[in-house]
Design a protein around this nucleic acid. Structure first.
Lengths: 193, 193
DNA sequence: GTTATAACATACCGATCGGTACAGTATTAT
DNA sequence: ATAATACTGTACCGATCGGTATGTTATAAC
């Protein structure tokens, strides 16, 4: 009954996600957004609401995709241990290769917005809980297959791995020497036995 | 030969540190700063330079104080293990009690500025290296006193504890359930044996 | 007391911020 | 064809941004 949208909403949201991920909420301006999304302001406002709503939509898109990526990475391995090793070593490799050093969008948001906005406190917490559940699941799989025989409670181990993942991801932002993070990864992985 | 300063530079810097710590670099305005520092803009500019130089001075003040606090906390204990336990449990307790949830100023800066400003990449990295050295020192003390007999390389263990500390501090920003972090702390501390 | 100097307070700068009013245009139901 | 509707582009809004010019005031050297 009216004119149809000329841009692809999902592609525009993806572009917004990229720039918010790279620069954070405050440092990203509406001009940054509209130029990268390839649309005008009124289009952005009508499709997504204000800047914060757009940010939230971008973060939700990120966490959804991030979760399923991690689940896939841990499931595609025959060995659970090997899955975790490849995953953690990938975090380090990505940290050195990404010029923009974006890290994890959710972790960035946890630091920038969670303390000042309850919505993002909840959203980021729930994502970490979800990652913990994915890790827990992988560990249980290893236990039932007889690959793992840890004396540590599986759930506690999963939670510790989430904490370690956060620490490693944030540490990469300062581009530490390789040995530092390589050693850390080895010690963290040694928990999984 | 000229008029003397009416404000205390160190107190003003401390006030700047508090607000940068709480709100970050971008979200803190010059009006926020001058009102909290109790001085006018030209005084701020003449004493500290521009906003970023003030931020850097505030961060340096923080890291210096932070390092010596941590060293003191780890040294004031008879047992090295107990020192680490008290320290990590304190991080959790502080995370729940601090209404503003400021976390660690250096970690916040690592996330917000290190990827876009080499000066802060270096500054934050060096602080983490320094913390690692403090941890390493404590571990060596435990080893030489016969309290610790870890099979893990002492330096690697220290580095892992820094990564864990970062992860825990950031995790607290999302105010997770107590069991989550309590379990994590237990597993982390179990590395120190 | 005079003069040089630097900190003080006010008031302002251009630029940019997030957000929107409005006019023009394309699409669909009638 | 016409009317209703919703998207597009331009141009603008007041507010605030980081930063500074300027005139006044206090101090120290002489």
């Amino acid at each position: 009954m009216a004119r149809q949208r000329e841009f692809n909403v999902d592609k525009a949201l993806d572009a917004a996600m990229q720039i918010f991920w790279e620069k954070g909420f405050e440092a990203t301006s509406l001009s940054d957004l509209t130029s990268r999304m390839g649309i005008q302001r009124p289009s952005m406002y009508s499709a997504f609401g204000d800047k914060k709503e757009l940010f939230e939509a971008a973060l939700r898109k990120y966490t959804t995709s991030h979760s399923s990526n991690i689940r896939a990475k841990l499931q595609n391995r025959l060995s659970v241990k090997e899955g975790f090793r490849t995953f953690f070593e990938g975090i380090v490799a990505d940290g050195y290769s990404d010029i923009n050093n974006r890290g994890c969008f959710c972790i960035n948001t946890m630091v920038e917005l969670a303390p000042h906005d309850e919505k993002f406190e909840i959203l980021t917490r729930e994502h970490q809980m979800y990652l913990s559940a994915i890790f827990h699941e992988a560990i249980e799989r290893g236990l039932q297959a007889g690959e793992l025989k840890t004396d540590i409670n599986a759930k506690a181990l999963a939670q510790t791995l989430v904490v370690s993942l956060i620490g490693l991801t944030v540490m990469m932002k300062s581009r530490p020497e390789r040995t530092f993070v390589d050693h850390s990864v080895e010690v963290i992985l040694s928990l999984i036995k």
